[in-house]
């Protein structure tokens, strides 16, 4: 079943067609990867799906419902989470608080109970912290729980982004270049983790330049070039597609 779909979605910035008439589907329980050269429009597509940009054309469907008009935080509440390519952490807050903040959409405690420390708050905080610790464990971040997010190394910050996005068990997570800045050892670990995330029931949409990661774990790949979708299919199909080979010609990787 398609859990996330775009229909002819597009946006232009002062004449630049950053994303142009792109239709794609992400099947529930799969890893769908989006690849393409720098500036192809991959991050912009994420921003359209997550509601940071309003499309100039087309629609986004989530679980069969049109969500194009919903605000970002409303989409998150439906179970659509994301990470950022250019890292957007709460830098001055601890790792614990960063991931706790990730639980905002599934927790309920109101301002009054928050301030009065009513039993419902204490219960919720306790459960939340437990969930956070499990997620941190999964991403090997447990030992940094009290560190400030901004003081972590680049690679750890990338992991923290993932922790914050998946802690509330979203239905779909959009990962924007989680492998950038990682060394070869960590790449393997990351691939494993993404597969584990998928196997735990979270649908993954992945933007990634590291081809070994993409080719080894993707169920389906979508290729963008100059804002347009030029191919989609299984890793094998895409790797042998003449249009894709041409788009990547002269490029490393």
């Amino acid at each position: 079943m398609a859990i996330l779909e775009t229909h002819g979605i597009g946006i232009h910035f002062d004449g630049l067609r950053a994303v142009d008439n792109v239709s794609f589907t992400a099947e529930e329980g799969q890893i769908t990867s989006i690849i393409g050269p720098n500036g192809a429009g991959k991050t912009t597509l994420f921003n359209l799906i997550a509601g940071f940009y309003t499309p100039t054309e087309g629609t986004v469907d989530f679980e069969g419902k049109d969500i194009t008009k919903l605000k970002t935080h409303e989409r998150t509440r439906l179970g659509l989470a994301r990470t950022f390519q250019n890292i957007n952490l709460f830098r001055e807050l601890s790792v614990m608080d960063n991931v706790l903040a990730g639980l905002h959409s599934v927790t309920k405690c109101d301002p009054i109970s928050s301030m009065l420390n009513l039993p419902n708050k204490i219960m919720e905080e306790k459960e939340s912290k437990k969930k956070v610790m499990e997620t941190l464990e999964f991403l090997n971040l447990s030992e940094y729980v009290n560190e400030k997010a901004g003081s972590l190394s680049y690679g750890l910050q990338k992991n923290l982004e993932i922790a914050r996005a998946i802690v509330f068990r979203p239905k779909v997570v959009l990962l924007d270049e989680p492998a950038s800045g990682l060394n070869t050892n960590d790449l393997h670990e990351l691939s494993q983790r993404i597969v584990t995330i998928r196997d735990s029931g979270i649908t993954v949409v992945l933007i990634e330049h590291k081809m070994d990661v993409v080719m080894s774990i993707s169920d389906k790949i979508i290729v963008l070039n100059f804002g347009e979708k030029i191919a989609d299919g299984t890793p094998d199909e895409v790797a042998n597609d003449p249009a894709v080979i041409e788009a990547y010609l002269g490029k490393d990787e």
């Binding site: 997550a50 994301r82 950022f84 001055e92 807050l93 608080d97 903040a101 905002h104 996005a165």
Partner: peptide, 14 residues
């Protein structure tokens, strides 16, 4: 606090 730190990320976490 998340709004103070980064309002884009605040939106993203809901």
């Amino acid at each position: 606090l998340s709004i103070r730190e980064n309002d884009i990320a605040a939106e993203a976490v809901g």
